[in-house]
């Protein structure tokens, strides 16, 4: 069993934690921290708390408290953003961690929540940006290239940070970069919205899962894939109880050109966590799945991901999907030069 497999099993079958050796725990703690999933492990371990060894409990309790703080802060950021955007006159749709938290979904349990992600209609971007600036948020990126990168090619504004609280907000107008080959229907995503508390919205169930799937399989190189797939597992398990959910999901996937990423995400979630998925939607494993699984199992017992050829291939693939070749070459060259310039003495 690979060290990451101990984590996958702890999440999907928490009872397995009863039988872990000290070495297993040490690996689980390392890999869980690296994947930002140790808080979720702590939440899953709650029913068997008394049976776990002291050394493990110390680390899990610390992570549980950390997550509680995260959720408190995330709740406050949601509250402040709702207030700032109350009069902009467009729907404000929470996404990812904040959406799961504000809706009370199982995916939020023990989940670390960092940036506040929201989706608004593209036409409303100037008004939303102005309102946030007026309420204490400032531009987090001072670099002109980064600003240009976001505004011209990305699916979101450059991140903004609140000048007093330090909370970061990402304002999206669609769910994939503008340069990507697939073009989800942003208007239909916004139409799918469901009202939640404080005058805010979240995406409809199918669209919420599709967004998460796009993150897993398309936007990037399966970085954080273990956590994104846990989100997929929780969302799919929750929403499967809705009458006709899978048919609606398949239709929405076609509409947003996300059928391939959706199937891949569902297949991988099934492999890692045993998610119950209709066979017709899952489809067949392919070479990208295999590369992804190698990466998802690639951490050692210290939580470190070796730089393997398969990971490089995924990195290139992730960028390949995001932007055309020439733009990609220029972008990677720029990033490489910047990394070199940023190394610091200890």
């Amino acid at each position: 069993m690979t060290p990451p497999a101990i984590l996958h099993r702890a999440l999907a079958a928490p009872e397995s934690m009863r039988g872990l050796s000290a070495d297993d725990w040490n690996a689980l703690i390392r890999v869980g921290r690296a994947e930002r999933l140790l808080g979720t492990v702590a939440a899953r371990a709650a029913p068997l708390w008394e049976a776990l060894p002291e050394g493990a409990l110390t680390c899990l309790a610390e992570e549980r408290d950390l997550t509680r703080g995260d959720h408190l802060a995330a709740g406050w950021e949601i509250n402040r953003a709702a207030l700032a955007l109350k009069n902009v006159g467009c729907p404000v749709i929470l996404m990812k961690g904040s959406a799961y938290l504000h809706t009370g979904l199982a995916a939020a349990e023990g989940r670390r929540i960092g940036d506040l992600d929201i989706l608004v209609p593209r036409a409303a971007l100037p008004a939303v940006e102005a309102a946030l600036l007026a309420h204490g948020w400032i531009q987090a990126k001072e670099n002109a290239y980064d600003d240009h990168y976001y505004r011209t090619w990305m699916h979101e504004l450059p991140p903004m940070v609140h000048k007093e609280r330090g909370g970061v907000i990402d304002v999206h107008h669609t769910i994939l970069p503008l340069t990507a080959r697939l073009k989800p229907d942003a208007g239909a995503l916004i139409e799918s919205r469901v009202a939640v508390a404080d005058g805010l919205f979240v995406l409809g169930p199918a669209e919420m899962l599709l967004h998460s799937a796009a993150h897993v399989a398309y936007d990037g190189e399966f970085e954080g894939g273990t956590r994104n797939l846990w989100d997929i597992h929780c969302l799919a398990s929750d929403f499967a109880r809705i009458e006709g959910f899978w048919d609606g999901l398949a239709a929405a996937a076609e509409q947003h050109q996300l059928r391939t990423p959706l199937s891949r995400a569902l297949r991988l979630a099934r492999r890692l966590y045993g998610t119950d998925v209709p066979e017709t939607l899952a489809g067949r494993m392919d070479i990208v799945d295999r590369l992804a699984l190698r990466k998802l199992h690639g951490r050692d017992r210290f939580g470190h991901q070796g730089a393997k050829l398969s990971d490089r291939l995924l990195y290139i693939r992730g960028h390949w999907l995001r932007m055309p070749p020439l733009m990609l070459a220029q972008h990677l060259a720029r990033k490489a030069l910047r990394r070199k310039a940023q190394a610091q003495p200890v």
């Binding site: 000290a22 070495d23 725990w25 040490n26 703690i29 390392r30 060894p53 002291e54 050394g55 493990a56 110390t58 680390c59 210290f302 939580g303 470190h304």
Partner: peptide, 12 residues
């Protein structure tokens, strides 16, 4: 050593 062999942080 720790009491149960589980440690808090790895530093390599």
């Amino acid at each position: 050593a720790t009491n149960d062999g589980i440690y808090d942080y790895a530093v390599n």
